[in-house]
Design a protein around this nucleic acid. Structure first.
Length: 419
RNA sequence: GCGGCAGUAGCUCAGGGGUUAGAGCGCCUGACUGUGGCUCAGGAGGCCGUGGGUUCAAAUCCCAUCUGCCGCCCCA
């Protein structure tokens, strides 16, 4: 085997691709229930959009982007997430304005240069939502509600919704400093790598898996003490609505997201079936992002959901749907007569999904193929049938076979399928 | 980016220095002249991930590399 798919990428093969279609179709249907409309943005953007949008110091920007220069000397980046491009398109095309609420959804590949693992790829796929123009907790709740509805619709039972608030920019800045002050003695004992990581984003120390850090952070100041009244009220109201919706959730004070643009609400849905990469989706409010990338101050909230992870969770739970047969019938063609081809064409015109053996092998072989294909019916056309002016329609599950006039074949199969 | 485990037929895997590398499943053909599933018989299919080294001899031992997986980091 000479060529392989690049590291961290994968082919989505027949059988699997139907599951992807089902999952995407379900997502579109759920989005429609809330009036979200699809947006499709380019696969790459100006590098600066992500640097400004996600934050210069974030992991994604510093070490995970696929950045390249095109022949015109422009720096471009394969999109590592969907929000910044969606917002860029929203601004560029004037999809909303002051006082207007805009609802967008997307389904897109994303690219991150990471070490691959189950549930983590260099090309991954996300579905996502952006609710732009509302700063209310009701908006956050709508996004969470839609997300959970999708998972429920897919049949993912085991999941945990975690929510937290990060407050607004000012309180976060003050809290960061307080955390750093508190942790300074601890930082001296850590490796260079950890120190750099924590200094650039002290909130990470809160959910670190390093036991030394965990122990040291037990007595750390909490964000709650710094939270401004507005953020506090926003969060309380959100929790109240989530309760009303009947959503089960946990407040996780250590939930920190990796992108700088989040303000106030952050949330994550986790699956116990996914191992280390257990986040099914992540989202939250980003009231500063739009201004950050050159738009007017506009509040917004959204979520990004991993398609591969949803499929992995379904697979682990044994809840993946069976893939359907690719055809309604398999035509057993035992003649060279052009009349047979006309029959096939006519049946397809009437909407019959019909498979054939282009090699026109023996009857036995064609029947074997028919069986293997999963098509419920085999329709035989040979010289005998052409002479009599009828086809033999066989139901493969029962073995029952009857002669049917060619113009009645499709109706015959259709009514048998519905029965 | 760090630590660990693993790559042999389409798939799951055995073989762990000594002739032409195996099994099960799958695939193709036949027994059955035009009827699938079951059975039986036959067949196709392998640079043993790749490159280098040790050795009289390497799928097997060593090194490097690539890819996957587990954990960390991070996140979808």
């Amino acid at each position: 085997m000479q060529y392989k798919a690049p590291r961290g990428t994968q082919d989505i093969l027949p059988g699997d691709s139907e599951r992807w279609q089902w999952l995407e179709r379900t997502f579109r249907e759920v989005c429609a229930l809330y009036g979200y409309q699809e947006i499709r943005t380019p696969i790459f953007e100006q590098t600066e959009l992500f640097q400004r949008g996600l934050g210069e110091a974030t992991e994604v920007v510093t070490k995970e982007m696929y950045t390249f220069e095109d022949r015109g000397g422009r720096s471009l980046t394969l999109k590592p997430e969907g929000t910044a491009p969606a917002i860029r398109a929203y601004l560029e095309n004037h999809l909303g304005g002051p006082g207007q609420v805009t609802r967008l959804y997307y389904i897109t590949p994303i690219f991150r240069y990471e070490r691959p693992q189950a549930g983590r790829y260099r090309q991954a796929h996300q579905t996502g939502l952006e609710l732009i123009g509302s700063g209310s907790p009701e908006a956050d709740a709508e996004v969470i509600d839609l997300t959970l509805r999708w998972y429920r619709q897919l049949g993912i039972q085991q999941l945990t919704l975690k929510v937290n608030t990060l407050g607004m920019r000012d309180c976060r800045t003050r809290y960061r400093e307080a955390l750093l002050d508190y942790a300074r003695p601890l930082l001296r004992d850590l490796s260079d790598e950890e120190r750099v990581r924590f200094e650039s984003n002290p909130l990470r120390m809160l959910d670190s898996k390093d036991p030394r850090v965990q122990a040291a952070m037990a007595e750390a100041p909490t964000l709650e003490a710094f939270l401004e009244a507005e953020s506090q009220e926003h969060f309380e109201r959100l929790l109240e609505i989530l309760g009303t919706l009947g959503a089960e959730f946990e407040v996780d004070r250590r939930l920190v997201r990796g992108l700088d643009y989040y303000t106030k609400t952050v949330f994550e849905v986790q699956s116990p079936d996914l191992g280390a990469q257990n986040a099914l989706c992540g989202g939250g409010r980003y009231d500063n992002l739009i201004q950050e990338i050159g738009g007017p101050p506009t509040p917004a909230t959204g979520v990004a959901m991993g398609i591969e992870r949803a499929l992995l969770a379904l697979e682990a739970a044994g809840a993946l749907p069976e893939t359907a047969a690719p055809a309604d019938a398999f035509a057993i063609v035992l003649t060279k007569s052009p009349e047979a081809e006309r029959w096939l064409a006519d049946w397809r015109s009437r909407g019959l999904r019909l498979l054939t053996d282009p090699e026109r092998r023996s009857a036995k072989s064609q029947f074997r193929q028919a069986d293997k294909s999963g098509a419920p019916f085999a329709v035989t056309i040979g010289d005998e049938e052409l002479e009599r002016g009828s086809a033999k329609v066989k139901q493969l599950s029962t073995g029952e076979e009857r002669e049917v006039a060619p113009e009645a074949v499709v109706e015959h199969i259709r009514s048998a399928l519905e029965a």
